[in-house]
Design a protein around this nucleic acid. Structure first.
Lengths: 240, 240
DNA sequence: TTTCCTCGGTACGGTAACGCACAAACATAT
DNA sequence: ATATGTTTGTGCGTTACCGTACCGAGGAAA
Protein backbone atom coordinates (compact mmCIF):
# COMPACT_ATOMS: atom_id res chain seq x y z
CA UNK A 1 0.00 0.00 0.00
CA UNK A 2 1.88 3.06 -1.24
CA UNK A 3 1.76 6.23 0.80
CA UNK A 4 -0.69 8.60 -0.84
CA UNK A 5 1.36 11.64 0.19
CA UNK A 6 -0.85 14.68 0.31
CA UNK A 7 -2.88 15.57 -2.75
CA UNK A 8 -5.49 18.30 -3.13
CA UNK A 9 -8.29 16.26 -1.66
CA UNK A 10 -7.89 13.60 1.00
CA UNK A 11 -8.25 10.17 -0.56
CA UNK A 12 -10.77 7.71 0.77
CA UNK A 13 -9.65 4.27 1.93
CA UNK A 14 -12.55 2.81 0.02
CA UNK A 15 -11.04 0.92 -2.90
CA UNK A 16 -13.64 2.01 -5.43
CA UNK A 17 -13.30 5.69 -4.62
CA UNK A 18 -9.53 5.33 -4.46
CA UNK A 19 -9.51 3.93 -7.96
CA UNK A 20 -11.16 7.00 -9.45
CA UNK A 21 -9.08 9.50 -11.44
CA UNK A 22 -8.35 12.72 -9.52
CA UNK A 23 -10.84 14.75 -11.47
CA UNK A 24 -13.73 12.37 -10.94
CA UNK A 25 -12.90 11.89 -7.30
CA UNK A 26 -12.85 15.58 -6.53
CA UNK A 27 -16.17 15.92 -8.23
CA UNK A 28 -17.64 13.13 -6.12
CA UNK A 29 -16.07 14.31 -2.95
CA UNK A 30 -18.37 17.31 -2.53
CA UNK A 31 -21.40 15.07 -2.47
CA UNK A 32 -20.05 12.51 -0.06
CA UNK A 33 -21.01 12.46 3.57
CA UNK A 34 -19.19 10.54 6.30
CA UNK A 35 -21.36 8.25 8.45
CA UNK A 36 -20.73 5.60 11.06
CA UNK A 37 -21.68 1.99 10.52
CA UNK A 38 -22.96 0.63 13.81
CA UNK A 39 -23.17 -3.05 14.60
CA UNK A 40 -26.56 -4.53 13.80
CA UNK A 41 -27.86 -1.49 11.95
CA UNK A 42 -30.08 -2.12 8.94
CA UNK A 43 -28.91 -0.19 5.89
CA UNK A 44 -31.58 -1.44 3.53
CA UNK A 45 -34.72 -3.39 4.24
CA UNK A 46 -35.96 -5.94 1.75
CA UNK A 47 -38.06 -4.21 -0.86
CA UNK A 48 -37.49 -0.71 0.52
CA UNK A 49 -36.35 2.28 -1.50
CA UNK A 50 -32.63 2.98 -1.55
CA UNK A 51 -31.97 6.58 -0.59
CA UNK A 52 -28.19 6.50 -0.33
CA UNK A 53 -25.37 4.44 -1.68
CA UNK A 54 -22.55 3.63 0.76
CA UNK A 55 -18.82 3.32 0.22
CA UNK A 56 -17.42 1.64 3.35
CA UNK A 57 -13.95 2.75 4.43
CA UNK A 58 -13.86 0.22 7.24
CA UNK A 59 -16.23 -2.33 8.72
CA UNK A 60 -18.35 -4.73 6.72
CA UNK A 61 -21.96 -5.10 5.70
CA UNK A 62 -23.75 -8.36 4.96
CA UNK A 63 -26.30 -8.80 2.21
CA UNK A 64 -28.95 -11.28 3.22
CA UNK A 65 -31.58 -13.07 1.24
CA UNK A 66 -34.62 -13.88 3.32
CA UNK A 67 -37.23 -16.59 3.06
CA UNK A 68 -40.43 -16.69 5.07
CA UNK A 69 -39.61 -13.54 7.03
CA UNK A 70 -37.57 -15.68 9.37
CA UNK A 71 -34.68 -17.53 7.94
CA UNK A 72 -31.92 -15.63 6.21
CA UNK A 73 -28.86 -16.54 4.22
CA UNK A 74 -25.91 -14.33 3.49
CA UNK A 75 -25.44 -13.84 -0.22
CA UNK A 76 -22.64 -11.30 -0.05
CA UNK A 77 -20.20 -9.48 2.17
CA UNK A 78 -19.23 -5.93 1.28
CA UNK A 79 -16.38 -4.04 2.87
CA UNK A 80 -14.00 -1.33 1.82
CA UNK A 81 -13.54 -3.00 -1.55
CA UNK A 82 -17.11 -2.29 -2.60
CA UNK A 83 -20.30 -0.32 -2.49
CA UNK A 84 -23.77 -0.79 -1.08
CA UNK A 85 -26.77 0.08 -3.19
CA UNK A 86 -25.75 -1.63 -6.40
CA UNK A 87 -29.37 -1.80 -7.60
CA UNK A 88 -29.28 1.99 -8.02
CA UNK A 89 -26.31 1.64 -10.31
CA UNK A 90 -28.22 -1.01 -12.25
CA UNK A 91 -31.25 1.20 -12.71
CA UNK A 92 -33.48 -0.09 -9.92
CA UNK A 93 -34.40 1.94 -6.87
CA UNK A 94 -35.16 -0.87 -4.43
CA UNK A 95 -33.22 -3.80 -3.06
CA UNK A 96 -34.42 -7.36 -2.72
CA UNK A 97 -31.77 -8.00 -0.13
CA UNK A 98 -31.41 -7.02 3.46
CA UNK A 99 -28.21 -5.11 4.21
CA UNK A 100 -27.00 -5.43 7.79
CA UNK A 101 -23.93 -3.89 9.40
CA UNK A 102 -21.90 -6.82 10.54
CA UNK A 103 -18.68 -5.15 11.61
CA UNK A 104 -18.34 -1.62 12.95
CA UNK A 105 -16.81 0.98 10.71
CA UNK A 106 -17.14 4.18 8.74
CA UNK A 107 -18.59 4.80 5.31
CA UNK A 108 -18.94 7.65 2.85
CA UNK A 109 -22.40 7.92 1.46
CA UNK A 110 -24.04 9.77 -1.37
CA UNK A 111 -27.69 10.49 -2.13
CA UNK A 112 -29.04 8.10 -4.76
CA UNK A 113 -29.99 10.98 -7.08
CA UNK A 114 -26.53 12.51 -6.97
CA UNK A 115 -25.00 9.11 -7.51
CA UNK A 116 -27.03 8.52 -10.65
CA UNK A 117 -25.80 11.82 -12.09
CA UNK A 118 -22.27 10.96 -11.11
CA UNK A 119 -22.44 7.67 -12.97
CA UNK A 120 -23.88 9.34 -16.04
CA UNK A 121 -21.03 11.84 -16.20
CA UNK A 122 -18.09 9.62 -15.31
CA UNK A 123 -17.11 6.65 -17.44
CA UNK A 124 -14.55 5.47 -14.97
CA UNK A 125 -17.08 5.18 -12.18
CA UNK A 126 -19.20 2.94 -14.39
CA UNK A 127 -16.27 0.79 -15.36
CA UNK A 128 -15.20 0.27 -11.77
CA UNK A 129 -18.69 -0.48 -10.55
CA UNK A 130 -19.25 -3.02 -13.30
CA UNK A 131 -16.19 -4.90 -12.14
CA UNK A 132 -17.45 -4.83 -8.60
CA UNK A 133 -20.85 -6.06 -9.78
CA UNK A 134 -19.14 -9.01 -11.39
CA UNK A 135 -17.22 -9.93 -8.29
CA UNK A 136 -20.33 -9.68 -6.15
CA UNK A 137 -22.20 -11.96 -8.54
CA UNK A 138 -19.37 -14.45 -8.36
CA UNK A 139 -19.43 -14.27 -4.60
CA UNK A 140 -23.16 -14.90 -4.53
CA UNK A 141 -23.06 -17.78 -6.99
CA UNK A 142 -20.19 -19.51 -5.27
CA UNK A 143 -21.72 -19.06 -1.84
CA UNK A 144 -24.94 -20.53 -3.14
CA UNK A 145 -23.26 -23.77 -4.13
CA UNK A 146 -21.14 -23.76 -0.99
CA UNK A 147 -24.08 -23.29 1.33
CA UNK A 148 -25.90 -26.09 -0.42
CA UNK A 149 -23.19 -28.72 -0.41
CA UNK A 150 -20.47 -28.10 2.09
CA UNK A 151 -20.63 -29.05 5.76
CA UNK A 152 -21.12 -26.37 8.32
CA UNK A 153 -17.54 -26.38 9.60
CA UNK A 154 -16.11 -25.58 6.20
CA UNK A 155 -18.66 -22.88 5.59
CA UNK A 156 -18.04 -21.26 8.92
CA UNK A 157 -14.30 -21.34 8.40
CA UNK A 158 -14.82 -19.70 5.03
CA UNK A 159 -17.00 -17.06 6.59
CA UNK A 160 -14.44 -16.25 9.27
CA UNK A 161 -11.70 -15.94 6.69
CA UNK A 162 -13.72 -13.71 4.41
CA UNK A 163 -14.66 -11.50 7.31
CA UNK A 164 -11.08 -11.38 8.49
CA UNK A 165 -9.90 -10.27 5.06
CA UNK A 166 -12.46 -7.51 4.71
CA UNK A 167 -12.22 -6.27 8.28
CA UNK A 168 -8.44 -6.39 8.08
CA UNK A 169 -8.36 -7.77 11.61
CA UNK A 170 -8.74 -11.14 13.24
CA UNK A 171 -10.81 -9.86 16.13
CA UNK A 172 -14.44 -9.01 15.85
CA UNK A 173 -17.69 -8.85 17.68
CA UNK A 174 -20.36 -11.32 16.65
CA UNK A 175 -22.97 -13.29 18.54
CA UNK A 176 -23.67 -16.90 17.68
CA UNK A 177 -27.22 -15.95 16.87
CA UNK A 178 -26.06 -13.41 14.30
CA UNK A 179 -23.53 -15.83 12.88
CA UNK A 180 -26.16 -18.51 12.47
CA UNK A 181 -28.17 -16.20 10.23
CA UNK A 182 -25.15 -15.65 8.03
CA UNK A 183 -24.10 -19.24 7.61
CA UNK A 184 -27.71 -20.36 7.31
CA UNK A 185 -27.86 -22.82 10.18
CA UNK A 186 -29.26 -22.97 13.68
CA UNK A 187 -27.49 -21.23 16.52
CA UNK A 188 -26.83 -24.57 18.21
CA UNK A 189 -24.92 -25.76 15.18
CA UNK A 190 -22.76 -22.64 15.28
CA UNK A 191 -22.09 -23.30 18.92
CA UNK A 192 -20.96 -26.84 18.20
CA UNK A 193 -18.66 -25.79 15.36
CA UNK A 194 -17.27 -22.94 17.41
CA UNK A 195 -16.39 -25.25 20.27
CA UNK A 196 -14.54 -27.58 17.92
CA UNK A 197 -12.60 -24.64 16.47
CA UNK A 198 -11.88 -23.47 19.98
CA UNK A 199 -10.68 -26.86 21.16
CA UNK A 200 -8.41 -27.09 18.15
CA UNK A 201 -6.89 -23.73 19.01
CA UNK A 202 -8.13 -22.05 15.85
CA UNK A 203 -10.15 -19.33 17.52
CA UNK A 204 -11.04 -17.95 20.89
CA UNK A 205 -14.66 -17.03 21.34
CA UNK A 206 -16.28 -15.59 24.40
CA UNK A 207 -19.55 -13.76 24.72
CA UNK A 208 -19.46 -12.35 21.22
CA UNK A 209 -15.75 -11.56 21.14
CA UNK A 210 -14.17 -13.71 18.50
CA UNK A 211 -10.45 -13.85 17.79
CA UNK A 212 -8.81 -15.79 15.01
CA UNK A 213 -5.73 -17.53 16.40
CA UNK A 214 -4.69 -19.83 13.59
CA UNK A 215 -5.35 -18.48 10.12
CA UNK A 216 -3.63 -21.36 8.41
CA UNK A 217 -5.64 -23.91 10.34
CA UNK A 218 -8.89 -22.26 9.32
CA UNK A 219 -7.81 -22.23 5.70
CA UNK A 220 -7.24 -25.95 5.81
CA UNK A 221 -10.80 -26.48 7.03
CA UNK A 222 -12.44 -24.02 4.66
CA UNK A 223 -13.46 -25.26 1.25
CA UNK A 224 -12.03 -24.18 -2.08
CA UNK A 225 -14.91 -21.72 -2.35
CA UNK A 226 -12.83 -19.33 -0.31
CA UNK A 227 -10.15 -19.29 -2.99
CA UNK A 228 -12.64 -18.95 -5.82
CA UNK A 229 -14.24 -15.92 -4.24
CA UNK A 230 -10.89 -14.37 -3.36
CA UNK A 231 -9.75 -14.66 -6.94
CA UNK A 232 -12.85 -12.95 -8.28
CA UNK A 233 -11.68 -9.55 -7.06
CA UNK A 234 -8.09 -8.29 -7.18
CA UNK A 235 -8.47 -6.59 -3.82
CA UNK A 236 -9.72 -9.72 -2.11
CA UNK A 237 -6.52 -11.49 -3.03
CA UNK A 238 -4.45 -8.71 -1.53
CA UNK A 239 -6.44 -9.04 1.66
CA UNK A 240 -5.95 -12.73 2.23
CA UNK B 1 -47.88 -8.35 -27.61
CA UNK B 2 -48.53 -5.78 -30.33
CA UNK B 3 -47.94 -6.74 -33.93
CA UNK B 4 -44.63 -5.27 -35.05
CA UNK B 5 -45.92 -4.71 -38.59
CA UNK B 6 -43.04 -4.71 -41.01
CA UNK B 7 -40.11 -2.43 -40.34
CA UNK B 8 -36.83 -2.14 -42.22
CA UNK B 9 -35.12 -4.94 -40.31
CA UNK B 10 -36.77 -8.07 -38.95
CA UNK B 11 -37.09 -7.82 -35.18
CA UNK B 12 -35.66 -10.48 -32.92
CA UNK B 13 -37.87 -12.31 -30.45
CA UNK B 14 -35.18 -11.81 -27.84
CA UNK B 15 -36.57 -9.32 -25.35
CA UNK B 16 -33.33 -7.38 -24.91
CA UNK B 17 -32.79 -6.90 -28.61
CA UNK B 18 -36.44 -6.12 -29.10
CA UNK B 19 -36.21 -3.35 -26.54
CA UNK B 20 -33.52 -1.50 -28.46
CA UNK B 21 -34.41 1.65 -30.42
CA UNK B 22 -34.58 1.07 -34.18
CA UNK B 23 -31.30 2.78 -34.86
CA UNK B 24 -29.31 0.78 -32.33
CA UNK B 25 -30.92 -2.46 -33.37
CA UNK B 26 -30.10 -2.02 -37.03
CA UNK B 27 -26.55 -1.29 -36.09
CA UNK B 28 -26.34 -4.47 -34.02
CA UNK B 29 -28.10 -6.57 -36.57
CA UNK B 30 -25.20 -6.68 -39.00
CA UNK B 31 -22.95 -8.25 -36.40
CA UNK B 32 -25.40 -10.85 -35.19
CA UNK B 33 -25.22 -14.44 -36.29
CA UNK B 34 -28.00 -17.01 -35.88
CA UNK B 35 -27.01 -20.25 -34.16
CA UNK B 36 -28.82 -23.30 -32.83
CA UNK B 37 -28.84 -24.15 -29.17
CA UNK B 38 -28.65 -27.93 -28.91
CA UNK B 39 -29.60 -29.85 -25.80
CA UNK B 40 -26.68 -30.49 -23.52
CA UNK B 41 -24.24 -28.22 -25.33
CA UNK B 42 -21.76 -26.30 -23.22
CA UNK B 43 -21.75 -22.61 -24.10
CA UNK B 44 -19.13 -21.57 -21.56
CA UNK B 45 -16.87 -23.70 -19.45
CA UNK B 46 -15.91 -22.57 -15.97
CA UNK B 47 -12.96 -20.23 -16.20
CA UNK B 48 -12.78 -20.26 -20.00
CA UNK B 49 -12.64 -17.18 -22.21
CA UNK B 50 -15.94 -15.89 -23.53
CA UNK B 51 -15.74 -15.49 -27.30
CA UNK B 52 -19.37 -14.68 -28.04
CA UNK B 53 -22.34 -13.31 -26.22
CA UNK B 54 -25.68 -15.00 -26.92
CA UNK B 55 -29.18 -13.57 -27.16
CA UNK B 56 -31.57 -16.54 -27.06
CA UNK B 57 -34.73 -16.23 -29.12
CA UNK B 58 -36.05 -19.56 -27.89
CA UNK B 59 -34.82 -22.34 -25.65
CA UNK B 60 -33.09 -21.84 -22.32
CA UNK B 61 -29.61 -22.02 -20.89
CA UNK B 62 -28.69 -22.83 -17.32
CA UNK B 63 -25.89 -21.17 -15.42
CA UNK B 64 -24.29 -23.60 -13.01
CA UNK B 65 -21.92 -23.08 -10.15
CA UNK B 66 -19.68 -26.06 -9.60
CA UNK B 67 -17.92 -27.38 -6.53
CA UNK B 68 -15.30 -30.10 -6.59
CA UNK B 69 -15.60 -30.69 -10.34
CA UNK B 70 -18.57 -32.91 -9.60
CA UNK B 71 -21.54 -31.39 -7.95
CA UNK B 72 -23.28 -28.48 -9.58
CA UNK B 73 -26.02 -26.10 -8.62
CA UNK B 74 -28.04 -23.93 -10.94
CA UNK B 75 -27.62 -20.27 -10.11
CA UNK B 76 -29.60 -18.85 -13.02
CA UNK B 77 -31.81 -19.67 -15.98
CA UNK B 78 -31.57 -17.48 -19.05
CA UNK B 79 -34.02 -17.57 -21.92
CA UNK B 80 -35.32 -15.12 -24.47
CA UNK B 81 -35.56 -12.43 -21.79
CA UNK B 82 -31.80 -12.24 -21.36
CA UNK B 83 -28.28 -12.62 -22.58
CA UNK B 84 -25.41 -15.00 -21.98
CA UNK B 85 -21.94 -13.67 -21.44
CA UNK B 86 -22.75 -10.99 -18.90
CA UNK B 87 -19.16 -10.95 -17.61
CA UNK B 88 -18.11 -9.38 -20.92
CA UNK B 89 -20.57 -6.57 -20.33
CA UNK B 90 -19.13 -6.16 -16.85
CA UNK B 91 -15.58 -5.89 -18.11
CA UNK B 92 -14.37 -9.44 -17.51
CA UNK B 93 -13.53 -11.87 -20.29
CA UNK B 94 -14.07 -15.16 -18.50
CA UNK B 95 -16.97 -16.76 -16.70
CA UNK B 96 -16.90 -18.50 -13.35
CA UNK B 97 -20.07 -20.31 -14.22
CA UNK B 98 -20.82 -23.20 -16.49
CA UNK B 99 -23.44 -22.40 -19.14
CA UNK B 100 -25.35 -25.42 -20.38
CA UNK B 101 -28.13 -25.57 -22.97
CA UNK B 102 -31.06 -26.95 -21.12
CA UNK B 103 -33.86 -26.52 -23.65
CA UNK B 104 -33.44 -26.56 -27.43
CA UNK B 105 -33.73 -23.30 -29.28
CA UNK B 106 -32.17 -20.60 -31.39
CA UNK B 107 -29.97 -17.69 -30.42
CA UNK B 108 -28.38 -14.68 -32.04
CA UNK B 109 -24.77 -14.29 -31.10
CA UNK B 110 -22.16 -11.59 -31.43
CA UNK B 111 -18.39 -11.70 -31.12
CA UNK B 112 -17.26 -10.41 -27.72
CA UNK B 113 -15.13 -7.67 -29.30
CA UNK B 114 -17.98 -6.35 -31.40
CA UNK B 115 -20.26 -6.48 -28.41
CA UNK B 116 -17.91 -4.36 -26.34
CA UNK B 117 -17.88 -1.69 -29.04
CA UNK B 118 -21.63 -1.87 -29.32
CA UNK B 119 -22.01 -1.22 -25.58
CA UNK B 120 -19.63 1.70 -25.72
CA UNK B 121 -21.59 3.39 -28.47
CA UNK B 122 -25.14 2.69 -27.36
CA UNK B 123 -26.47 4.01 -24.07
CA UNK B 124 -29.68 2.11 -24.40
CA UNK B 125 -27.92 -1.22 -24.66
CA UNK B 126 -26.11 -0.48 -21.41
CA UNK B 127 -29.27 0.54 -19.67
CA UNK B 128 -31.12 -2.59 -20.70
CA UNK B 129 -28.27 -4.89 -19.79
CA UNK B 130 -27.92 -3.32 -16.38
CA UNK B 131 -31.55 -4.10 -15.67
CA UNK B 132 -31.02 -7.66 -16.79
CA UNK B 133 -27.94 -7.89 -14.58
CA UNK B 134 -30.06 -6.87 -11.64
CA UNK B 135 -32.72 -9.45 -12.31
CA UNK B 136 -30.13 -12.17 -12.72
CA UNK B 137 -28.56 -11.20 -9.40
CA UNK B 138 -31.94 -11.37 -7.75
CA UNK B 139 -32.55 -14.75 -9.28
CA UNK B 140 -29.22 -16.03 -8.00
CA UNK B 141 -29.64 -14.64 -4.51
CA UNK B 142 -33.16 -15.95 -4.10
CA UNK B 143 -32.25 -19.36 -5.49
CA UNK B 144 -29.37 -19.51 -3.05
CA UNK B 145 -31.67 -19.16 -0.06
CA UNK B 146 -34.27 -21.42 -1.63
CA UNK B 147 -31.81 -24.20 -2.32
CA UNK B 148 -30.54 -23.96 1.22
CA UNK B 149 -33.83 -24.03 3.08
CA UNK B 150 -36.70 -25.37 1.06
CA UNK B 151 -37.52 -29.05 0.61
CA UNK B 152 -36.79 -30.70 -2.66
CA UNK B 153 -40.41 -30.92 -3.80
CA UNK B 154 -40.90 -27.16 -3.57
CA UNK B 155 -37.64 -26.49 -5.32
CA UNK B 156 -38.39 -28.86 -8.12
CA UNK B 157 -41.84 -27.37 -8.61
CA UNK B 158 -40.25 -23.93 -8.77
CA UNK B 159 -37.76 -25.13 -11.32
CA UNK B 160 -40.45 -26.64 -13.52
CA UNK B 161 -42.47 -23.43 -13.40
CA UNK B 162 -39.51 -21.22 -14.20
CA UNK B 163 -38.56 -23.44 -17.10
CA UNK B 164 -42.12 -23.50 -18.33
CA UNK B 165 -42.27 -19.70 -18.30
CA UNK B 166 -39.03 -19.24 -20.19
CA UNK B 167 -39.58 -22.04 -22.68
CA UNK B 168 -43.15 -20.89 -23.25
CA UNK B 169 -44.26 -24.50 -23.30
CA UNK B 170 -45.15 -27.15 -20.76
CA UNK B 171 -43.39 -29.96 -22.58
CA UNK B 172 -39.66 -30.42 -22.53
CA UNK B 173 -36.91 -32.94 -22.74
CA UNK B 174 -34.90 -33.50 -19.56
CA UNK B 175 -33.37 -36.54 -17.93
CA UNK B 176 -33.55 -37.04 -14.20
CA UNK B 177 -29.78 -36.99 -14.06
CA UNK B 178 -29.68 -33.56 -15.67
CA UNK B 179 -32.47 -32.31 -13.46
CA UNK B 180 -30.67 -33.46 -10.34
CA UNK B 181 -27.71 -31.26 -11.25
CA UNK B 182 -29.99 -28.25 -11.53
CA UNK B 183 -31.88 -28.69 -8.32
CA UNK B 184 -28.73 -29.74 -6.51
CA UNK B 185 -29.83 -33.15 -5.26
CA UNK B 186 -29.23 -36.78 -6.09
CA UNK B 187 -30.91 -38.34 -9.07
CA UNK B 188 -32.76 -40.74 -6.79
CA UNK B 189 -34.32 -37.83 -4.97
CA UNK B 190 -35.51 -36.37 -8.26
CA UNK B 191 -37.01 -39.70 -9.12
CA UNK B 192 -38.91 -39.82 -5.87
CA UNK B 193 -40.26 -36.29 -6.21
CA UNK B 194 -41.18 -36.90 -9.85
CA UNK B 195 -43.19 -39.96 -8.97
CA UNK B 196 -45.13 -38.04 -6.36
CA UNK B 197 -45.87 -35.29 -8.88
CA UNK B 198 -46.87 -37.93 -11.37
CA UNK B 199 -49.18 -39.73 -8.97
CA UNK B 200 -50.82 -36.44 -8.11
CA UNK B 201 -51.47 -35.76 -11.77
CA UNK B 202 -49.25 -32.69 -11.90
CA UNK B 203 -46.89 -33.94 -14.59
CA UNK B 204 -46.30 -36.83 -16.91
CA UNK B 205 -42.72 -37.95 -17.19
CA UNK B 206 -41.33 -40.74 -19.26
CA UNK B 207 -37.78 -41.33 -20.37
CA UNK B 208 -36.86 -37.70 -20.49
CA UNK B 209 -40.13 -36.39 -21.89
CA UNK B 210 -41.72 -34.21 -19.28
CA UNK B 211 -45.14 -32.58 -19.61
CA UNK B 212 -46.69 -30.20 -17.16
CA UNK B 213 -50.34 -31.15 -16.68
CA UNK B 214 -51.43 -29.01 -13.76
CA UNK B 215 -49.78 -25.62 -13.58
CA UNK B 216 -51.90 -24.48 -10.67
CA UNK B 217 -51.08 -27.59 -8.68
CA UNK B 218 -47.37 -27.03 -9.15
CA UNK B 219 -47.70 -23.42 -8.06
CA UNK B 220 -49.28 -24.52 -4.82
CA UNK B 221 -46.30 -26.76 -4.11
CA UNK B 222 -43.63 -24.27 -5.16
CA UNK B 223 -42.34 -21.82 -2.59
CA UNK B 224 -42.75 -18.05 -2.61
CA UNK B 225 -39.32 -17.85 -4.20
CA UNK B 226 -41.01 -18.41 -7.52
CA UNK B 227 -43.00 -15.22 -7.10
CA UNK B 228 -40.03 -13.21 -5.88
CA UNK B 229 -37.99 -14.15 -8.93
CA UNK B 230 -40.87 -13.57 -11.30
CA UNK B 231 -41.36 -10.07 -9.96
CA UNK B 232 -37.72 -9.16 -10.42
CA UNK B 233 -38.09 -8.92 -14.18
CA UNK B 234 -41.09 -7.42 -15.99
CA UNK B 235 -40.92 -10.06 -18.70
CA UNK B 236 -40.94 -12.94 -16.25
CA UNK B 237 -44.26 -11.77 -14.93
CA UNK B 238 -45.72 -11.69 -18.40
CA UNK B 239 -44.53 -15.25 -18.89
CA UNK B 240 -46.16 -16.80 -15.87
C1' DT C 1 -28.24 -7.81 46.04
C1' DT C 2 -31.71 -9.11 43.49
C1' DT C 3 -33.88 -9.14 39.13
C1' DC C 4 -33.88 -9.51 34.45
C1' DC C 5 -32.30 -10.32 29.95
C1' DT C 6 -29.15 -11.63 26.52
C1' DC C 7 -26.09 -14.93 25.18
C1' DG C 8 -23.99 -19.48 25.41
C1' DG C 9 -23.77 -24.62 26.27
C1' DT C 10 -25.76 -29.25 25.88
C1' DA C 11 -28.79 -33.09 25.07
C1' DC C 12 -31.91 -35.99 22.42
C1' DG C 13 -35.26 -37.68 19.25
C1' DG C 14 -36.79 -36.87 14.42
C1' DT C 15 -36.13 -36.59 9.50
C1' DA C 16 -34.67 -35.24 4.96
C1' DA C 17 -31.40 -36.27 2.08
C1' DC C 18 -27.05 -38.91 1.12
C1' DG C 19 -24.16 -43.06 -0.48
C1' DC C 20 -24.31 -47.23 -2.20
C1' DA C 21 -26.07 -50.99 -4.55
C1' DC C 22 -28.69 -53.36 -7.90
C1' DA C 23 -32.23 -54.51 -11.24
C1' DA C 24 -35.55 -53.41 -14.76
C1' DA C 25 -36.90 -50.89 -18.94
C1' DC C 26 -35.75 -49.07 -23.03
C1' DA C 27 -32.99 -47.47 -27.01
C1' DT C 28 -29.31 -48.19 -30.32
C1' DA C 29 -25.76 -50.44 -32.57
C1' DT C 30 -23.73 -54.86 -34.44
C1' DA D 1 -31.28 -61.35 -31.91
C1' DT D 2 -27.94 -60.07 -29.30
C1' DA D 3 -25.10 -57.01 -27.09
C1' DT D 4 -24.25 -52.65 -24.93
C1' DG D 5 -25.19 -48.37 -22.96
C1' DT D 6 -28.38 -45.18 -21.03
C1' DT D 7 -32.20 -43.94 -18.21
C1' DT D 8 -35.23 -45.16 -14.58
C1' DG D 9 -37.10 -47.48 -10.28
C1' DT D 10 -36.36 -48.83 -5.53
C1' DG D 11 -34.52 -50.29 -1.10
C1' DC D 12 -31.61 -49.67 3.07
C1' DG D 13 -28.23 -48.17 6.35
C1' DT D 14 -25.92 -43.72 7.50
C1' DT D 15 -25.46 -38.94 8.61
C1' DA D 16 -25.84 -34.10 9.06
C1' DC D 17 -28.71 -31.05 10.55
C1' DC D 18 -33.27 -29.60 12.50
C1' DG D 19 -36.75 -28.77 16.40
C1' DT D 20 -37.42 -28.43 20.90
C1' DA D 21 -36.29 -28.02 25.40
C1' DC D 22 -33.77 -26.46 29.24
C1' DC D 23 -30.15 -24.69 32.09
C1' DG D 24 -26.13 -21.82 33.15
C1' DA D 25 -23.11 -17.63 32.85
C1' DG D 26 -22.43 -12.96 32.50
C1' DG D 27 -23.71 -8.22 32.22
C1' DA D 28 -26.88 -4.38 33.11
C1' DA D 29 -30.37 -2.23 35.58
C1' DA D 30 -33.23 -1.53 39.86
Amino acid sequence: MPDTKKTETKRSTNYLLAALPDKDYEHCYKKLERVELKYGTTIYKTGATINHVYFPESGIVSLLSAVEEQTTLEVGIVGSEGMLGLPVFLGVSTSNNLALVQGEGVALRMAADDFIKECASGDEMSRILKLFTYSLMTQTAQSAACNRFHPINSRMARWLLMTHDRMRTGEFQITQEFLSNMVGVRREAVNKAARIFHDDGLISYNRGKLSILDLKGLKSIACECYQVISKSHPDYEKMS
